[in-house]
Amino acid sequence: MKKDTGGMYQKALAEYRLKIYFLAPTLLVLIVMNVFPLIWSLGLSFTNYSSLMSKRIAWVGFTNYSRILSDPFIWKYFQTTARFVIIAVGIEFLLGFGLALLLKEQFRGWGLVTTLILIPMMLSPVVVGLFWTFIMDANFGLLNFLLGLLGFKKILWLTNPHLALYSVAMVDIWMWTPFIMLISLTGLLAIPQSLYEAADIDMASWWFKFRKITLPLVSPLLVLAVLFRVIDAFKMFDLVFIMTGGGPGDVTETISMSLYRLAFNKFKTGESCAMAYIILILIIALSNLLIRWIHRTKTA
């Protein structure tokens, strides 16, 4: 009897140890590689530190923060980013969901077609940015040639200040519409066919079925997909960096781009840490929305 409980205890201890061994490395990595740098940069955000110069580091209090928040350009870049997010994600949503509705019913070659459409989102944004720059070239680009066949005049996709942001958004749309399509399609395919059959017996219209069956049942996944995209688009850096570098002028300067410039061109490290923290707070707010939503979809 005594021996038996000892065995139980041994076993419980072994299990406990295993649990610690299994969890500790991951948590350690995340703390050392994520939490620690963030705490450090919080510290730096209150200093005048520059990674370029070796002058003495001095505490400057909230100077960096007040400078960032009172800089009219930063506000402009926030607006640019917001515009980019709204245009890109909005159109991705419409196109992606529309495409999913088209692909809802399976046909011969369905698997191949859907997988082919998904390729863009798996590619590196740098690579995508590069070949779209090539395609959007005003003189020898494919896009202007094709539009020329339709009678359009030469369009300066990336150098016209009124157009550049939309051009970059268009590439984002090319890349990420498949993502919205994929998530919508997953949702659409999960809707029990019997619901539509029941509606058919009642002679329900297409619009009625869409509004009363399709939309309510896929909307949790649609929200999920849009939240993922909003967070990602808000962080947008690669495409802008490759395609326009923030230009012409500063019309495509997103906040990630201007933060990059502040930290790695001007080397105002302290100030850039402050700006990073302001962005971080926004991202945390957005991610919280997403995380709550994940929680809801998981428990639902």
Binding site: L30, P37, T269, I279, I283, I284, H295
Partner: peptide
């Protein structure tokens, strides 16, 4: 909470963690 902490680290914008990493 732990799982969501783990997820939240993925949401961090690369540029935000990039600056302290560069210095570090």
């Amino acid at each position: 909470d732990l799982l969501f902490f783990i997820l939240s680290t993925r949401m961090l914008p690369p540029i935000v963690v990039g600056i302290p990493f560069f210095v570090l």
